[in-house]
Amino acid sequence: EQLARLKREFNENRYLTERRRQQLSSELGLNEAQIKIWFQNERA
């Protein structure tokens, strides 16, 4: 579920704002660094 949600977010926007990253962190139970790194890896 977390992965599917991250992929949906990535398809909508390849870059997250700090606020959006905080929201996802709270909703998915991941820390902000994990989300940031995931997005960086997807863009690579």
Score class of each variant (00 low, 15 high):
Arg8Ala: 13
Gln40Cys: 08
Glu12Asn: 11
Ala44Asn: 12
Gly29His: 04
Asn41Cys: 14
Leu3Glu: 08
Arg19Tyr: 10
Ala44Arg: 11
Leu16Pro: 14
Ala4Gly: 04
Leu30Ala: 00
Ser25Arg: 04
Ile35Trp: 01
Ala4Trp: 03
Asn31Glu: 13
Ile37His: 10
Ala33Cys: 15
Ala4Cys: 14
Arg14Tyr: 04
Phe10Glu: 02
Gln34Met: 14
Asn41Gln: 12
Leu6Asp: 00
Arg21His: 03
Asn13Gly: 06
Lys36Asn: 14
Ala44Lys: 11
Ala44Asp: 12
Gln22Met: 12
Gln40Val: 07
Arg19Lys: 14
Asn13Pro: 02
Glu12Cys: 14
Glu27Lys: 05
Glu12Pro: 00
Asn11Met: 14
Ile35Thr: 01
Ala44Pro: 03
Asn11Lys: 13
Leu28Tyr: 02
Asn13Leu: 07
Thr17Tyr: 04
Ser25Cys: 09
Glu18His: 14
Phe39Trp: 15
Arg21Gln: 13
Tyr15Ala: 06
Leu28Cys: 05
Glu27Met: 08
Arg19Ser: 14
Gln34Asn: 05
Arg43Pro: 03
Glu18Met: 11
Arg5Tyr: 06
Ala44Val: 09
Leu3Trp: 07
Leu3Pro: 00
Glu12Trp: 10
Phe10Ser: 02
Arg43Lys: 07
Glu32Ile: 09
Glu18Arg: 15
Lys36Thr: 15
Arg5Trp: 05
Asn31Ala: 13
Asn31Val: 05
Ser25Glu: 05
Leu3Arg: 04
Arg21Pro: 02
Gln34Leu: 14
Asn31Ile: 06
Glu42Arg: 06
Tyr15Asp: 05
Ala33Val: 12
Gln40Thr: 07
Arg21Asn: 07
Glu12Arg: 13
Glu1His: 08
Tyr15Met: 08
Ala4Asn: 08
Arg8Leu: 10
Gly29Val: 02
Lys7Val: 08
Ile37Arg: 12
Gln40Ala: 12
Tyr15Ile: 12
Glu32Pro: 11
Leu24Ile: 06
Gln2Val: 15
Glu12Ala: 10
Gln23Ala: 11
Glu9Leu: 08
Ala44His: 09
Leu30Lys: 00
Arg21Tyr: 12
Asn11Pro: 00
Glu9Ser: 05
Asn31Leu: 10
Gly29Glu: 04
Gln22Leu: 12
Phe39Cys: 03
Glu27His: 06
Leu6Cys: 05
Gly29Pro: 00
Asn31Ser: 15
Glu32Asn: 03
Lys36Ser: 15
Glu42His: 07
Arg20Leu: 10
Ile35Asn: 02
Leu6Ala: 02
Glu12Phe: 09
Lys7Tyr: 08
Leu6His: 00
Arg5Asp: 00
Leu24Phe: 02
Lys36Phe: 12
Leu30Phe: 03
Glu27Val: 06
Glu9Lys: 05
Gly29Tyr: 02
Ser25His: 02
Ala33Arg: 08
Ala44Glu: 13
Asn31Met: 08
Asn41Trp: 10
Phe39Ile: 01
Asn41Tyr: 09
Leu3Gln: 08
Leu30Cys: 09
Ala33Trp: 15
Glu18Val: 15
Gln34Tyr: 15
Trp38Gln: 01
Lys7Phe: 07
Gln34His: 09
Arg21Met: 15
Ser25Leu: 09
Lys36Pro: 01
Asn11Asp: 13
Leu3Ala: 04
Thr17Gly: 06
Thr17Asn: 11
Ala4Ile: 08
Trp38Met: 03
Arg20His: 06
Ala4Pro: 03
Asn41Phe: 08
Glu12Thr: 10
Glu1Met: 09
Leu16Asn: 03
Trp38Val: 02
Ala4Phe: 01
Glu32Gln: 06
Ile35Leu: 09
Glu1Tyr: 09
Arg14His: 09
Arg19Gln: 14
Asn41Glu: 07
Glu32Val: 11
Leu24Asp: 03
Gln40Gly: 04
Leu6Gln: 01
Phe39Gly: 00
Glu1Arg: 06
Leu6Met: 03
Gln23Lys: 11
Ile35Arg: 00
Glu1Asn: 08
Tyr15Phe: 13
Leu28Phe: 03
Gln40Lys: 10
Gln34Trp: 15
Glu32Ser: 08
Gln40His: 09
Glu1Leu: 11
Gln40Asp: 14
Arg19Ala: 15
Glu9Ala: 14
Asn31His: 10
Thr17Val: 04
Asn31Cys: 09
Gln2Asn: 08
Arg21Ser: 15
Arg21Leu: 15
Leu28Pro: 02
Ser25Asp: 00
Arg21Ala: 15
Ala4Ser: 06
Gln2Ala: 13
Arg20Gln: 12
Gly29Trp: 03
Leu30Pro: 01
Leu6Tyr: 01
Arg19Met: 12
Trp38Ile: 04
Leu6Pro: 00
Gln40Trp: 08
Leu6Asn: 01
Glu12Ile: 12
Ala33Ile: 12
Asn31Lys: 08
Lys7Ser: 05
Glu27Asn: 03
